[in-house]
Amino acid sequence: PVYLSVKADNSMFIGNDPVTDETMITALNALTEGKKDTTIFFRADKTVDYETLMKVMDTLHQAGYLKIGLVG
């Protein structure tokens, strides 16, 4: 499974590897070998604001990742 996490300080990680807004999709493409039907499990600290969550989800959708599971 692929886990994308947003921490309380808005830092992002794919698994244990830090990513930025600019590198997130490139890292996901490498990890999933470009398979856009891969489910991305998205988790965020409860203090992360809604705007940040939606920005990340919008970026995922624009890149073609449509299977996003929200996890606690």
Rank of each mutant, 00 (worst) to 15 (best):
T52R: 13
V56R: 04
S5M: 12
I14C: 03
A27G: 04
Q62Y: 07
P18T: 05
T38S: 06
I40W: 00
D49P: 15
A27M: 15
G34H: 07
M12V: 09
L53N: 02
L66T: 14
E51K: 12
G72I: 14
A44N: 05
Y65C: 02
T39P: 14
D49G: 13
N29D: 14
T26S: 13
V48A: 08
E33G: 15
M24L: 15
V56N: 02
L66I: 10
E22P: 02
V19E: 02
T59A: 13
V6I: 15
M12N: 01
K35A: 08
G34Q: 05
P1E: 09
G64D: 02
K35C: 07
T59I: 15
E51P: 07
V19F: 03
L4E: 00
D45L: 03
T26Y: 09
T26L: 11
G64H: 02
K55H: 10
I25H: 03
D17W: 13
M54G: 06
T59V: 13
A63D: 04
T39W: 14
L53I: 15
E22Q: 11
A8F: 09
I14M: 05
I68S: 03
K36N: 05
M57D: 01
A27T: 14
T26C: 08
T59G: 05
N10P: 01
G64Q: 02
D49E: 12
L53Q: 05
T23S: 10
S5Y: 15
Y50N: 10
K55Y: 07
T39L: 14
T20V: 03
P18V: 08
D17Y: 13
A30N: 11
S11A: 08
Y65E: 00
R43P: 01
N10S: 09
E33R: 14
M54F: 09
D45T: 04
K67P: 05
A63R: 02
K7D: 08
L4V: 12
K67H: 12
L60D: 00
A63S: 06
D49S: 15
K35G: 04
S5H: 14
I14H: 01
D45S: 06
L66F: 15
I40K: 00
M24D: 00
A63V: 03
T32A: 03
N10L: 14
M54H: 09
G72F: 10
S5F: 15
R43C: 15
E22V: 10
Y50G: 07
G72M: 13
Y65P: 00
K7F: 14
I40H: 00
A30H: 10
L70S: 05
D45V: 03
N10A: 09
L31Q: 06
V48H: 04
G34Y: 05
T39C: 15
D58E: 14
E51M: 12
V6Q: 02
R43D: 12
L70N: 06
T32V: 06
D45I: 02
V48Q: 03
L28R: 00
M54A: 10
D37H: 08
A8D: 08
A63T: 02
N10T: 07
V2W: 02
F41H: 10
I68W: 03
E51F: 10
G34I: 03
Y65I: 02
I25V: 10
N10R: 12
D58G: 10
F13S: 05
G15C: 12
L53C: 10
L70Q: 06
T20W: 03
E33T: 08
T38A: 07
S11H: 08
M57T: 04
M24H: 00
